[in-house]
Write a protein that binds this DNA or RNA. Structure first.
Lengths: 153, 153
DNA sequence: GCCTAAAATGATACGTTGTATCATATCGAA
DNA sequence: TTCGATATGATACAACGTATCATTTTAGGC
């Protein structure tokens, strides 16, 4: 079984465990995100879907599917780019802390890294002192990946 | 002279110093951002402009003006919210390092705080190790301000 | 002051993104 | 198999942003 099939199967089990359904369309969209290995916008997914399955999928459906997948913590929405990535930890069973996403502004490749506990504490402290509260402990940083840096040079 | 007039005057001098022109419209938009004390979208600025000056301003103009102001480092674009804020340091003459914006997801109030040198170093390290390079040293964090937290309770 | 080139702004049309709404299809349990 | 709930489709539309060309304004030389 391919790596992707294995991840999908894991995701399906995760959904079943609490009565959610990873339907065929949802699997297809999730698979596209996993395969692409980068962040994709809703409309990029629509185009990809057309290419891959030779069938149109309505924007509405894609947005709904993405919303579902996000709720299941199978994908993350990157607000900086208005794109979506497959969660790097679908196949882990443990929960994760604050996540930090490095997003290549040119090719949309995304790396999901974790933040040191000390930085998290400092961030919390800063936010609290400023009279704010963290909503989503998710930090997105605009970057360029080395591939794109080299190409540009 | 009001605080805002003083800031505007400072901004105008800053522009003149390198042959840029802070025109009347640009001043008006900048003043709106300073007055509002929060992040505003382009279309919010259009509506505000209509209210305040009883005159329509085209979307195109607002976008161009915002682009200009951003180039002059008089406003920042917050990519997380697709909104703009007046730079908190217009009236300083020194340059600033990495900036961190705390954005209230409910009322768009923005606080511009600075990051400790150690955190910046760590961020740089993390990014480099992951094979990326920082583009804009600007970090935006999704928060709720205490006012909105209290109201919601 | 007047003229001219450059810079700034206006107006129109259009492309993209996202959503509201109602219709249709599919699934799962009785 | 049937029925209610869930998921998907189709259409129209609202919001956001930009391309393009027309018009106005500005600064500087005469």
């Amino acid at each position: 079984m391919s790596r992707i099939d294995s991840i999908i199967q894991h995701a399906e089990q995760h959904c079943k465990d609490h009565g959610a359904r990873l339907t065929a369309k949802r699997k297809q969209i999730l698979a596209q995100l996993i395969q692409s290995n980068k962040a994709l916008s809703a409309y990029e997914l629509i185009d990809l879907y057309k290419d891959q399955y030779n069938e149109k999928i309505p924007a509405m459906s894609v947005y709904r599917i993405l919303e579902f997948l996000e709720g299941e913590h199978l994908v993350h929405k990157l607000n900086l780019a208005n794109k979506y990535v497959a969660c790097a930890h679908i196949s882990c069973d443990h929960s994760h802390g604050v996540q930090q996403f490095l997003i290549c502004g040119n090719c949309s490749k995304v790396k999901e890294v974790s933040i040191s506990q000390s930085t998290i504490s400092e961030l919390n402290e800063t936010v609290k002192d400023a009279g704010y509260q963290l909503v989503s402990p998710q930090i997105e940083v605009n970057c360029l990946c080395n591939d794109c840096v080299l190409k540009a040079a």
